[in-house]
Measured scan of single mutants.
Amino acid sequence: HNLTITQGKLFFHYNPKLCLSEIHKMEEVSGTKGRQERNDIALKTNGDQASCENELLKFSYIRTSFDKILLRWEPYWPPDFRDLLGFMLFYKEAPYQNVTEFDGQDACGSNSWTVVDIDPPLRSNDPKSQNHPGWLMRGLKPWTQYAIFVKTLVTFSDERRTYGAKSDIIYVQTDATNPSVPLDPISVSNSSSQIILKWKPPSDPNGNITHYLVFWERQAEDSELFELDYCLKGLKLPSRTWSPPFESEDSQKHNQSEYEDSAGECCSCPKTDSQILKELEESSFRKTFEDYLHNVVFVPRKTSSGTGAEDPRPSRKRRSLGDVGNVTVAVPTVAAFPNTSSTSVPTSPEEHRPFEKVVNKESLVISGLRHFTGYRIELQACNQDTPEERCSVAAYVSARTMPEAKADDIVGPVTHEIFENNVVHLMWQEPKEPNGLIVLYEVSYRRYGDEELHLCVSRKHFALERGCRLRGLSPGNYSVRIRATSLAGNGSWTEPTYFYVTDYLDVPSNIA
């Protein structure tokens, strides 16, 4: 807008934040220059609390790290170098490059900038070799853009010569660093050979998330399962459950009422301010606690030095998902009996873990797994792929695949051998790939016309006998059925096997 004052003059007093240069501009645009008398524009009460600059400061050096910015700028000295009290560095987070010096300023003089007072450097006698002032900004957020400017702080001049310097606002972004852990990993099994893994992005990506790394490792069953005799009275049979499938998407929606109208769909109840505040506090606490764990609990591995020492970490090797089922080394339970199943799973520490690289999504279907087997899954978020990966501390989750139908069934015939004193040795093959492992066998036998009897055969007993022995049988026709019990439950009964026990007292003698 054009402003013209045809008559009258300007009068400025007691404006401590208004620089004289701005008042002189007002004289020019209003056409009143030359009308004012000496005392109409006070030299001592206008701009006496402001830094009124008329020179431009330029930054000469900028260096960044993930949490620091090192700045240096060209030296500046007023005509009387004693008038320079120091520099004021202003900075704040700036997602967009549209910041002005006066953003967030209120009537009390406060604003949204963080201000650092910096002492002037030592003055050199040689004007050509003056030290460049600077400042190291610490405690910054990774991968965050900051708006920065600097200006001088000078003393009051009796001659009211307006001098000083100020830089333009520059924008500097800190470097990326390792992201925080992925949030809320959930693993479920939808079949006997697959596990579905879902997660949420890290709360602090500290860069642009480029991919996720998912490692999985087959877990050995508890050692007590191999040692305890679950045929003993009072000892509860062990059981394991597989990871249940995901709930429906509708039930997972946030901010939804727990109660549904019987007449149909209901609208979600909005969260109160107290609920939102509580969630923010919980989120802040979780982030602080995660940072504490990362800094205190997890110790970084030592990389190899120039002395030739090897990095103890196993090298990563990509495998196809079809090879995942046989990740671990199978060892027989008892070496003397080769027909026992290889369900003991000690994992070799030198073995390469299978892994998958996930790009542009937060889910993965891990296939080719062994049925009813526990897996430990390790999830890392990465925001750099080359020249070397920059990934987060791992988040861990466990899951067990679903049982395989008929995996616990005894394959092959049940054979028998009759000894003296009416002892019958029953023999059968253990299931080759049971659900988890076989903890015991149930032997059901009966003599024709009598009630059915049951015998429990422990895992250890089966390994020693290759089956079991029935003792003290009365003469007669017998039928026997056997079924295995694994961590997933009972298998199917075998087809009945028949044998006849004679009275050993009636056996004919070869003595003449």
Results as ranks from 00 to 15, higher is better:
406 K>F: 08
264 G>N: 15
364 L>S: 13
335 A>Q: 08
477 N>W: 04
454 H>T: 09
220 A>T: 14
338 P>G: 10
392 S>N: 01
268 S>N: 14
232 L>C: 11
459 R>Q: 12
453 L>G: 07
236 K>Y: 14
502 T>I: 03
261 D>V: 15
292 Y>W: 09
463 A>I: 10
474 S>D: 06
366 I>V: 11
363 S>G: 13
363 S>T: 11
217 E>Y: 15
438 I>C: 04
444 S>F: 11
316 R>M: 06
323 D>E: 10
337 F>L: 08
432 K>N: 11
379 L>A: 04
414 V>N: 01
391 C>R: 02
415 T>R: 12
435 N>E: 01
312 P>A: 15
277 L>M: 15
249 E>A: 11
372 F>V: 01
471 R>F: 14
448 Y>M: 15
208 N>K: 12
329 V>K: 07
419 F>M: 01
282 E>Q: 15
337 F>I: 09
315 S>Y: 09
408 D>L: 03
304 S>F: 15
386 T>L: 15
450 D>P: 01
286 R>S: 09
454 H>P: 05
341 S>Y: 04
306 G>C: 10
506 D>A: 10
480 V>Q: 01
345 V>Y: 12
248 S>F: 15
209 I>V: 12
450 D>L: 04
445 Y>I: 01
442 E>T: 05
289 F>D: 15
257 S>Q: 06
325 G>E: 06
412 G>E: 08
289 F>S: 07
206 N>T: 03
330 A>V: 11
297 V>D: 08
490 N>L: 07
351 E>I: 11
295 N>S: 14
415 T>Q: 13
286 R>K: 15
400 R>P: 01
501 V>G: 01
360 N>K: 14
337 F>S: 06
346 P>T: 14
270 P>E: 04
304 S>D: 15
466 R>P: 05
227 E>S: 11
388 E>M: 09
485 T>E: 14
438 I>G: 01
396 Y>T: 14
316 R>I: 08
449 G>L: 14
290 E>Q: 14
482 I>K: 01
259 Y>A: 12
441 Y>K: 00
317 K>C: 07
275 Q>V: 09
251 S>M: 15
290 E>K: 06
222 D>E: 09
396 Y>Q: 05
377 I>R: 00
394 A>C: 10
420 E>V: 05
336 A>D: 15
504 Y>T: 04
478 Y>L: 00
498 Y>Q: 07
321 L>F: 12
266 C>L: 06
243 S>P: 11
455 L>M: 11
257 S>Y: 09
459 R>P: 05
270 P>V: 09
425 H>M: 09
297 V>A: 07
263 A>Q: 08
502 T>N: 11
433 E>W: 13
318 R>W: 15
300 P>S: 07
509 S>L: 07
232 L>T: 14
308 G>T: 09
284 S>R: 07
504 Y>L: 11
212 Y>R: 00
272 T>F: 05
246 F>K: 11
225 L>Y: 03
248 S>I: 12
316 R>Q: 04
312 P>Y: 13
303 T>I: 06
451 E>F: 14
338 P>H: 10
264 G>W: 07
421 N>T: 09
237 L>P: 08
470 L>N: 01
473 L>A: 02
435 N>D: 01
222 D>F: 12
440 L>K: 06
340 T>F: 12
288 T>L: 11
451 E>M: 13
204 D>T: 03
338 P>K: 05
347 T>Y: 12
326 N>H: 12
492 S>P: 06
214 V>W: 00
357 K>Q: 04
306 G>S: 09
204 D>P: 03
372 F>S: 07
259 Y>I: 03
231 C>P: 04
425 H>K: 07
252 Q>H: 09
216 W>Y: 12
298 F>E: 08
399 A>P: 05
292 Y>V: 10
464 L>T: 10
211 H>T: 05
361 K>I: 07
270 P>K: 11
242 W>T: 06
239 S>T: 13
294 H>A: 15
434 P>T: 06
397 V>N: 14
318 R>N: 12
495 E>V: 05
273 D>P: 15
250 D>H: 07
470 L>S: 01
435 N>F: 00
242 W>A: 04
493 W>E: 02
215 F>K: 04
284 S>F: 05
443 V>C: 02
367 S>D: 07
381 A>S: 11
